[in-house]
Design a protein around this nucleic acid. Structure first.
Length: 799
RNA sequence: GCGGGGGUGGCGGAAUGGCAGACGCGCAGGCCUCAGAAGCCUGUGUCGCAAGACAUGAGGGUUCAACUCCCUCCUCCCGCACCA
């Protein structure tokens, strides 16, 4: 007998839909539980990654619901973005029409998986009812100086014809199309995320239930480093060059200074010097170099002497000033003090150019007398030498003392440097939220008044893929009266990066139709923060950092009273096939829809949870799917053979299973939960289940295989949905065994096992163990040295 | 280089100081069957006829007892990276 998954799945999906079975509203007497999975970009088809992500989430949602929580489990679409525009160019359609069609198709596929979403809360970021609030948030930020426009060198993707945030540049390429990113000088809109850098870093410690690696990646990205900004005066002028260092303990070993080629002081330094021409040539050469090539480590460090000299403030030594490509303008002050003996980069550069070196830190393990004896820089800890009054101190201690001393003497300033840059959000594309700004010849940059929101995207824009943003070609959109003075003005034609949209969608789900603000404060106060967030590791930096930033901003606006949006985070592993990530380009995609057709959604859900724990990679295995299906059919057949009363031994197994499954579900250990449900099923096959045992098995399966379980539940004579049933509770009395098996080891090796009464006392047990005939050859007549007893488990006889 | 996570049968994986390999896939054998890519049952780490020995990337240590804790090393994956 096979169960008819096609019929069953369709039937229950219809019922749940009709009854809006999973819609959630605040309730005072139940514990709220907000479960969220990262919403998808509506490409039109779901892939296995979605299936895995949403299955994990759905099982958790259904489990929490049946455990008695008030669960909110919404779904929506991250619907703005470039693919829609590319499709429009290619297929001569409109991005809006294309996107809405994709959303519909995708929704159909999600419904086929039986996910228990509250579809009444569905949001789509491309609808003006949503992006109006993007504009509202932008204006609030603009008012507070957190959204600003500036001209600077930006990352430019020549293929997508748009700018990219730092976070969107992966290995020097565009995150979307992998095209090599170029540098371009443009005036662009930024969000001042750096204003929140301290809080973004500090609050990471609050996130106890986030994976270690995500926390590490975020901390790394924010990149706080503590050090000193040291002022180097020029030898023959009052000009000062500030440098940043995290190693003030090595200042006495600084034997030259290096500036980035783009450093603004360079021109003044070389003016009139014999080196001027050469240096200019070098600067020109470096500026033409690809940033990626320049950044790739271990390339030869090229540089040139400027002809100028500076003075080391701690010892008044006159040192030469260089420029070199290994110093970056973007970090610190764009200038460094070089300590070749204690920094490998400086060491290589100094050797290349014959610059002098001085050892200022001696390892306590070995001594190097002369810098010429060094084969590489010594970057470890040790004792200060050649460092004036600091000689003999451990360098870590000297670091603090020198910092304070320099600050007191006015030679420098203790400073913290950050890696995090402001977030570039403007995109020269059509399919995104219009930035609500007007440029007036008289008033300058004028924000669109709140009452005029939303600034709607014009429906008909030309999509050619050439000649800049399509919005710039729509007169009706472009030409506008200045809201301040009424003069003819021009709208901003850039749109917002889509990461803006997803930085707060979890709040919109709390009140998706709310008209007064991005979200209803009261609803958000009830549902937020998200109790469990689930999504891919690829969002570890971008999306999660932006969402944290927005939440803190909302807190500052007084809209929420928490500062972190996601309490627990689960990053699910990738789905692989033949050891490689499933991807279109590799041609190793398995289409979920075809699997649903062959095996049913329940089988697919079961397999994907059973094959690996949620956090690790999952190797696709069609045989595994067959096995999952086999198991369900095995459970299905149990109903044909129910007894009046189950054997006590089976009831015991049931209670053990309840305990294990309940614990495993709470910890997202679905693979082992399923294993124990399989064991219970095997035990049923060894004897026979009664209605009670079988009902409980079916309930425990219901979060994983909802349609299948609902059908069996009904067949058992229940009128109400299985999701209104009660989660089984185990009886700890049932777990207690009358006899236990004691493993007997001799010198740590298992030699025998005996069954003894559960409540046996120690002396009696010892007597029984030592009388065990099987042990005789091992014990012989050797004296007993030790007798280790682990109650109810094991003894170890040490001879 | 820095940071994070791994390495266990033919395969996915289980066990976080106490019987290594639960559960499943695959494979082998049996039963049932006109038939089986169905179902049910049994077996399945390696060597060995067996007793037993060996076995969780390698080596060392702590312990009565180590996949689990500590040290050294190898190796794979991911993130950041000339960040001063």
């Amino acid at each position: 007998m096979f169960y008819n998954f096609k019929k069953i799945e369709k039937k229950w999906q219809k019922v749940w839909d009709k009854e809006a079975a999973f819609s959630a509203r605040p309730s005072p007497d139940k514990k709220k539980y907000y479960l969220l999975e990262m919403f998808p970009y509506p490409s039109g088809k779901i892939h296995m990654g979605h299936v895995r992500n949403y299955t994990i989430g759905d099982v958790a949602a259904r489990f929490k619901r049946i455990e008695g929580c008030n669960v909110m489990h919404p779904m929506g679409f991250d619907a703005f973005g470039q693919p829609a525009e590319n499709a429009a160019i290619k297929n001569k359609t409109k991005p809006g029409a294309w996107t809405r069609k994709c959303i519909q198709e995708m929704e159909t596929e999600l419904r086929k998986m039986g996910f228990s979403y509250d579809w009444k809360r569905e949001v789509s970021t491309c609808e003006s009812g949503y992006y109006k609030w993007n504009q509202w948030i932008f204006l609030k930020m603009f008012e507070r100086g957190l959204a600003y426009k500036k001209a600077s060198g930006v990352n430019w993707c020549p293929s997508c014809q748009t700018t990219l945030a730092n976070e969107e540049v992966i290995d020097g390429g565009c995150w979307r199309c992998h095209t090599k990113v170029e540098q371009k000088d443009l005036e662009q809109w930024y969000l001042k995320i750096t204003e929140y850098k301290e809080r973004l870093l500090e609050d990471l410690t609050q996130l106890k239930n986030w994976p270690e690696r995500v926390l590490a990646m975020q901390a790394n990205w924010i990149g706080r480093s503590q050090g000193v900004e040291i002022y180097f005066k020029l030898k023959d002028s009052d000009m000062v060059i500030p440098v940043f260092t995290t190693r003030p303990d090595t200042i006495f070993g600084a034997t030259y200074i290096v500036l980035a080629p783009e450093h603004p002081l360079v021109k003044g330094l070389i003016q009139g010097k014999p080196q001027e021409k050469e240096v200019l040539k070098f600067m020109d050469k470096v500026s033409k170099e690809n940033k990626l090539a320049r950044a790739s480590a271990n390339v030869k460090k090229e540089g040139i002497f400027t002809g100028s000299f500076a003075v080391n403030p701690v010892n008044n030594e006159v040192i030469s000033i260089w420029i070199a490509d290994y110093v970056l303008m973007e970090y610190g002050t764009g200038a460094i003090m070089a300590v070749p003996t204690h920094d490998q980069r400086d060491f290589l550069f100094a050797r290349e150019h014959g610059l002098s070196m001085r050892i200022v830190i001696q390892s306590t393990e070995y001594r190097v007398e002369k810098p010429e004896d060094l084969t590489e820089a010594y970057e470890g800890d040790g004792l200060q030498v050649n460092s004036g009054q600091f000689d003999g101190l451990p360098n870590q201690e000297a670091k603090k003392k020198i910092s304070r001393w320099m600050e007191k003497e006015g030679m420098g300033k203790i400073k913290v440097n950050w890696r995090l840059r402001d977030w570039l959000i403007s995109r020269q594309r059509y399919w995104g939220t219009p930035i609500p700004i007007i440029y007036c010849p008289q008033c300058g940059v004028v924000p669109v008044p709140y009452k005029d929101l939303p600034v709607k995207l014009p429906k008909d824009a030309p999509f050619t893929g050439e000649g800049g943003s399509p919005l710039g070609k729509v007169k009706k959109f472009l030409e506008v009266k200045c809201p301040k003075c009424g003069l003819k003005a021009r709208r901003e034609t850039d749109t917002m990066a889509t990461f803006f949209d997803s930085a707060w969608y979890f709040l919109r789900f709390c009140s998706p139709k709310y008209q007064e603000a991005p979200f209803d404060k009261k609803e958000a106060a009830y549902w937020m923060p998200v109790d469990q967030y689930i999504g891919g590791i690829e969002h570890a930096i971008l999306h999660l950092l932006y969402a944290r930033f927005f939440t803190k901003f909302f807190k500052d606006l007084g809209l929420v009273d928490f500062s972190e949006p996601f309490n627990c985070l689960l990053t699910q592993g990738m789905v692989l096939k033949d050891g490689e990530v499933m991807s279109k380009s590799k041609g190793n995609i398995v289409d979920p829809d075809s699997m649903i057709k062959r095996f049913g959604a329940d089988t697919l859900r079961l397999f994907i949870l059973f094959a690996a724990p949620p956090g690790t990679e999952l190797e696709w295995d069609e045989w595994g799917l067959v096995g999952a299906n086999k198991f369900l059919n095995r459970v299905w057949r149990v109903q044909e053979n129910l007894k009046e009363k189950a054997e006590p031994a089976l009831v015991k197994v049931l209670h053990k299973t309840i305990k294990k499954v309940t614990e495993d579900f709470s910890e997202f250990k679905f693979n082992t939960a399923i294993a124990s449900l399989m064991e219970l099923t095997n035990a049923i096959y060894q004897s026979s289940a009664d209605k009670e045992v079988f009902s409980k098995l079916v309930i425990m399966l219901s979060p994983i295989t909802p349609h299948f379980s609902e059908e069996l539940w009904q067949a058992l004579g229940n009128k109400e949905s299985i999701f209104k049933a009660e989660w089984p509770v185990y009886d700890s009395k049932m777990l207690a065994e009358e006899t236990v098996t004691i493993v007997i080891q001799v010198n740590g090796k298992v030699r025998s096992k005996i069954d003894v009464p559960n409540d046996i006392d120690e002396a009696k047990l010892k007597e029984l163990v030592l009388a065990d005939a099987k042990l005789a050859p091992w014990i012989q007549n050797k004296p007993l040295k030790n007798f280790i007893l682990v109650p109810k488990k094991l003894v170890n006889i040490v001879l």
